[in-house]
């Protein structure tokens, strides 16, 4: 779950600085050596979860990627053979290509639409009702979004194709043609995430103080150049965050594909995570599946790192 949310204001009003947990330590006087013992009690359950379901699986996943393992029997160490096989696996390269196509379409569409929507909301209507309406698709499961569009985009009797026909254009096999399958998946995802992303950007717009705009207009800045020179640069931290989260999430597309096209037609929607799923669970090739998962993990880490580095996402110009 990659929800980005804002904790509400504290109940026991406090005007404490947001960062720096180590600011003035009023309570230090109570225990000289700190609260280690009691802290261990409080973090014990979370620690169990962290170790059992995050740390150990991470190590085990990396180990499995160097083995041949078909659930039955024991994993057999085969060194880097899985990775050598991946390098020569046309289905892997196809999956990488198809996934990248999906990510790119998704990012461009979703970010552009969300940015536009956020600006519209910021300018003409800030009501919670409107934001709620735009957020509705995001609250639905991927599976629901997938089925809903699978029906609306049906070639034979889907309402969208009916409308397309009325305009005089030929019907589109949204899910059935290799050419359209990935853009269609990206469209479904864009529909589901557009409002949510718009809300994130909207929150970023709200955080830009009016004084900045006032200064710009006193200096005679036109609306368009105000947008490019002031709004967009000041939004950068939010935009970078949105981009990183969207890219990472998009690389892991699975649900909508699994429910609608299941990799097809041919290999058109055999995205990375679906391919991993098939190798590991349908073909019981856990070693190979794990190696693919390691590759996906590395791709995500590199992409996130590059985005943060080159877009300087952790620095704000507002300070």
């Amino acid at each position: 779950m990659t929800m980005l949310t804002k904790p509400p204001e504290p109940g026991l009003s406090a005007r404490a600085p947001r960062k720096s947990p180590k600011r003035g330590k009023p309570s230090d006087g109570f225990r000289g050596i700190g609260d280690l013992k009691i802290a261990l009690f409080f973090i014990a359950p979370a620690m169990i979860g962290l170790i059992l379901f995050y740390l150990v699986p991470t190590i085990r996943g990396i180990y499995l990627s160097f083995t041949e393992y078909s659930i039955l029997g024991d994993p057999e160490w085969i060194g880097a053979r899985n990775y050598e096989r991946i390098a020569k696996d046309p289905l892997f390269w196809n999956a990488l290509g198809v996934t990248s196509e999906y990510v790119v379409i998704n990012i461009v569409l979703q970010t552009a639409l969300a940015l536009g929507l956020a600006i519209l909301m910021h300018r003409v209507a800030k009501s919670t009702l409107i934001r709620g309406a735009l957020l509705m698709p995001y609250l639905m499961a991927n599976v629901i979004a997938a089925l809903l569009w699978f029906w609306m985009l049906d070639y034979q009797i889907g309402v969208i194709n009916q409308i397309i026909e009325w305009t005089g254009l030929p019907r589109v096999a949204f899910f059935g043609s290799e050419q359209w399958a990935i853009p269609t998946q990206a469209l479904i995802n864009t529909w589901r995430h557009m409002g949510y992303t718009a809300l994130l950007i909207f929150a970023g717009l709200q955080a830009i103080p009016n004084s900045v705009y006032e200064a710009a207009s006193i200096d005679g800045s036109k609306a368009v150049s105000t947008f490019w020179r002031i709004t967009l640069p000041l939004l950068r931290p939010v935009l970078v965050l949105v981009l990183v989260v969207t890219v990472i999430g998009s690389f892991q597309v699975f649900d909508t594909v699994a429910v609608t096209t299941a990799g097809g037609p041919v290999n058109a929607t055999r995205v990375l995570q679906f391919y991993i799923y098939q190798r590991a669970f349908n073909e019981q090739d856990f070693g190979y599946g794990s190696a693919l998962a390691v590759i996906l993990f590395l791709i995500l880490a590199i992409v996130a790192f590059l985005q943060m580095k080159f877009l300087r996402g952790n620095q704000s110009d507002l300070d």
């Binding site: 929800m3 980005l4 949310t5 804002k6 904790p7 509400p8 947001r18 919670t128 934001r131 709620g132 957020l135 509705m136 609250l139 949510y196 809300l199 994130l200 909207f202 929150a203 970023g204 709200q206 955080a207 931290p237 939010v238 965050l241 996402g313 952790n314 704000s316 507002l318």
Partner: peptide
């Protein structure tokens, strides 16, 4: 969403960078 819509909508927008 019908009951807690406002709470849900208002919770979105924390960007962690500030």
């Amino acid at each position: 969403f019908a009951i807690f819509g406002k709470r849900i909508v208002n919770s979105i927008g924390f960007n962690g960078t500030k």
